[in-house]
């Protein structure tokens, strides 16, 4: 029997991995559509376009990372699932939220900036670096969300 606390921790991990993943999926999708358009005109830009398309993919990874630490801490990986109190579970649930929500939205918006960066790369390939940097500005908030999620998960003593 799993306790309510353990289930809540599961929910936290699920939100972190899935919402941040959705953000990345949408972001990479938006950038990919723009990229395919540019490549249809100039296939040689594939390398640059791919880098820009890959950028919004990191939020999903950050989400996975937090989800992984949560399930690792509650013992899912090694098979001895711990019984958490409701409050411990709730704390882990909340700890998953920053990267879940931050990743969801920053992924989508980073995708839009990347799509714009891909058009920039189509018109002025020598300025692709600036497009990448602008996309990285959006990622800042996913990074901050990741950090606070990590510190929170780390702070829950089981």
């Amino acid at each position: 029997m799993l306790s309510l606390g353990t289930s809540l921790a599961f929910a936290g991990a699920a939100f972190a991995a899935s919402l941040a993943g959705v953000g990345s999926a949408i972001g990479v999708g938006i950038a990919g559509q723009a990229g395919a358009g540019v490549i249809s005109e100039d296939p040689e830009k594939f390398g640059n376009v791919l880098v820009l398309q890959a950028l919004p993919g990191t939020q999903g990874i950050y989400g996975l990372l937090i989800a992984f630490i949560i399930v690792l801490n509650i013992g899912v990986i090694d098979g001895n699932i711990k019984d958490l109190t409701t409050y411990q579970g709730l704390a882990l649930f909340f700890a998953g939220l920053p990267i879940a929500i931050g990743g969801l939205f920053s992924g989508i918006y980073q995708g839009k900036v990347c799509a714009a960066g891909i058009y920039l790369c189509a018109k002025r390939p020598e300025e692709t670096g600036k497009g990448i940097i602008m996309a990285a500005m959006v990622e800042t908030y996913a990074v901050l969300a990741l950090l606070i999620s990590f510190i929170m998960v780390n702070g829950v003593k089981l």
Binding site: T58, I61, Y62, L64, L65, F68, I69, L72, I77, T140, V143, L144, L146, L147, F150
Partner: peptide, 23 residues
């Protein structure tokens, strides 16, 4: 100054993803 916390966060990302792969 707070922006420099990304030094930690990105290091964290590398380490934990590597850990996931190993697991």
């Amino acid at each position: 100054l707070l922006s420099y916390s990304r030094l930690f966060a990105l290091g964290l990302a590398t380490g934990v993803i590597a850990m996931v792969i190993n697991t």
